[in-house]
């Protein structure tokens, strides 16, 4: 086929360039701008090189927040993925109850983040909350505003409550795509329940589970609203995750330079990890189609 060369075609790309510039590139550049400058007030800025980046890399505060963040994401992935798969395996396959379960499962996903936070904030209160009061009544020392373990348990339970449905729904979709003949053949082959899971269900779910893990990882790595509403990052800094710390730094202390450097690094970390996920996933896909 002969292609005609017409440089005017560039004008067709222009709207997208403008849109992306205003929505992403220019705001990002202001952050970049702050990250390499310092000010003593009066809106006068001067060049500061990479000092803020250096400072942040040497700050215990950021490393601690990152550490908490990694621990948090690992724990919720370790709970939500197996739990979601377990729930999906036990959901009815068809009929009225299948639809009923689907609606029930998707309810938590529809609730806004700050409402979820508020629900758990009240639910966990020792004076009026059902959970907090009950735990207190049976003699468990539970107070998420003071206890380190109680705070973490509450934040994790809240995330599991909010997001296990997502994993379950994705896993359920994967399970639904398995033809009945596979289960029949497995019965004929006298496969155990575990073998059916290991060799039929799990392979068919791999694709959707990778997506679930990626989504849950990115989302949990950026978590802000829910713990902010429940614990406000406390007690002390116990549940101060990266986003909470960043907002404290940028808006609480108005340290725009360090906060900008911090957010750029945060952005790069998420990009890097998502890229690794993406590469692994596409490689898996390729391997499947190539064979």
């Amino acid at each position: 086929m002969n292609k005609t060369v017409n440089q005017k075609a560039w004008f067709l790309v222009l709207p997208v360039l403008v849109l992306v510039a205003f929505s992403a590139v220019i705001p990002l550049m202001t952050v970049v701008n702050y990250s390499v400058q310092d000010t003593f007030g009066n809106n006068v800025f001067f060049w500061n090189g990479l000092r803020w980046f250096q400072d942040m890399l040497e700050s215990d505060r950021m490393w601690n927040a990152l550490g908490r963040q990694v621990v948090f994401s690992s724990i919720i992935l370790a709970i939500e993925v197996p739990l979601g798969v377990f729930v999906a395996l036990n959901m009815p396959k068809r009929g009225f109850w299948a639809s009923f379960c689907l609606v029930l499962m998707s309810l938590p996903l529809l609730i806004p983040w700050n409402v979820v936070g508020t629900i758990w904030q009240i639910f966990g209160r020792v004076d009026i909350g059902l959970l907090g009061h009950t735990l207190d009544a049976v003699g468990i020392d539970y107070n998420y505003t003071q206890g380190f373990i109680a705070a973490w348990a509450t934040v994790i339970a809240m995330d599991v409550w909010h997001w296990t449905s997502l994993v379950a729904l994705l896993a359920y979709a994967g399970l639904q795509s398995i033809p009945d003949a596979y289960y029949q053949a497995a019965k004929i082959d006298q496969a155990s329940r575990w073998a059916v899971f290991r060799y039929i269900e799990l392979p068919k779910m791999t694709g959707v589970l990778m997506i679930a893990i990626l989504l849950r990882f990115m989302d949990s790595f950026m978590i802000y609203t829910e713990p902010f509403v429940v614990t406000g990052g406390g007690p002390g800094n116990a549940t101060t995750f990266l986003s909470i710390d960043l907002v404290k730094m940028a808006l609480g202390q108005f340290d725009l330079g360090p906060a900008a450097a911090f957010s750029l690094m945060y952005f790069l970390v998420i990009m890097a990890i998502s890229w690794v996920f993406y590469t692994v996933m596409t490689n898996l896909d390729n391997r499947e189609s190539r064979r």
């Binding site: 003949a181 004929i188 006298q190 496969a191």
Partner: peptide, 27 residues
């Protein structure tokens, strides 16, 4: 203890051909 073959192929994707054939015996 019956052998049955269906109209459309059912194989266990993650296994090799050998493991597929051995599956009913291993069970």
């Amino acid at each position: 203890n019956i052998g049955q073959v269906f109209q459309f192929p059912v194989v266990y994707d993650t296994m090799t051909v050998r493991e597929n054939l051995a599956f009913p015996l291993r069970n």
